[in-house]
Design a protein around this nucleic acid. Structure first.
Lengths: 202, 202
DNA sequence: TTCATTTTGTACCATTTCGCATAAAATGTT
DNA sequence: AACATTTTATGCGAAATGGTACAAAATGAA
């Protein structure tokens, strides 16, 4: 790859453009974001946006997929099995909160839970990608928890699948509460309680 | 009240209109719903909508408040302290799922988490009402859990506030997952695990 | 009956929205 | 240098959007 293309070269970087678009969608939602707003934020005019990403829904799906991939990378880092499960989970929630509490006017929470859920009924592809994202997240935690059971970090007979979904449930709640304006202290306390719930009080 | 008013009587019932508007907002989100759609669904023309409820944001806030109030009523019923806490929580999740799994094209999840979170950044009044709704919900569960600790249903020294927020977290997750298309079986299993998590496996 | 008051329905308005047509600009190819 | 190809920029246009003006209709009050 990286062969020189024929025509006029692009004056923008696709990754940077998707990041700018993500900021806008994150604050205003999918339906609440116009192409003009996207055009202003990315400094691309609409025909360039169309040429590079297709219509608004395709652009949004691109942004969703980027967020999903980044989140899974961060999750994989946080779940490094050379550390105890308790540390892993604390780091999962910590790194999520670092993202959720960022924002210009107010904390933005999770991009997917904050914006994709609203579109999930009307846009089947959004719903499917959202569903897959949640499943992937659950799956990664489930595998780490299953390992913890093997290692004796958690009692034998633990249902790794359901315990993982409970761990994800705490994440979902952090996502919603952050966007509703809960304080960092409250969210950190909930995260800590979540860790205790999964790993035990000890 | 109920005094006869002076002018031409209304040809519609405000409660029914708000219910129709809720259906539309629930499926399409706030920004994704146009006044024409609302007008068609409620069978009121736009000037009547404005006269009765104010602009689109005011109408949405009315719908939010109605949903919040109904939810709190249902929650109070479910938390009837003459039943064990375990039964209470199971009923809380059951009645929530009955609402969340309803929908024409797809399960709609929770109205607030599914639609209000998206607007929470841009619309401060939506964010505040969302925040208050979550707090009220947490508070009602916390009071029931505190009672359970007094009664010895839960171990002494239990942090009722945090345990209640974990119980709410399971609700939030049910809300998100339902809208993402999870099956009823999966959601019921998660609810059951949530009850076990709060009340113990016994 | 006449008037005041409120709701209804039609029509309208300014703006925004999405999408595209078209031409100019910037590159590689021959 | 001439051409093919791709991106950029301007701008158009049809439709949708939120909101309102205004007159007709329906009621109670005087």
């Amino acid at each position: 790859m990286n062969e020189k293309k024929r025509g006029r070269p692009r004056a923008f970087d696709a990754r940077e453009t998707l990041e700018k678009a993500r900021e806008v969608f994150w604050d205003r939602g999918y339906a609440g974001t116009s192409l003009d707003t996207l055009s202003a934020a990315t400094k691309l005019n609409r025909p360039s946006l169309y040429g590079a990403f297709g219509d608004k829904e395709a652009l949004y799906l691109d942004v969703m997929e980027g967020y999903r991939a980044e989140s899974m990378d961060a999750l994989a880092d946080a779940l490094d099995p050379s550390f105890p499960l308790r540390d892993n989970l604390a780091r999962v929630y910590d790194s999520a909160l670092a993202v959720y509490l960022h924002g210009e006017t107010a904390a933005r929470g999770c991009f997917l839970i904050g914006t994709a859920t609203a579109e999930a009924i009307q846009h089947e592809r959004v719903r499917d990608l959202l569903s897959r994202s949640l499943e992937d997240f659950d799956g990664a935690i489930e595998r780490r928890i299953a390992l913890a059971v093997e290692r004796g970090e958690l009692p034998e007979g633990t249902d790794a699948g359901m315990l993982a979904r409970l761990a994800s449930a705490v994440m979902h709640s952090l996502a919603v509460r952050a966007r509703a304006g809960d304080s960092r202290e409250m969210l950190e306390a909930l995260a800590k309680s979540g860790v205790d719930m999964i790993c035990g009080r000890a």
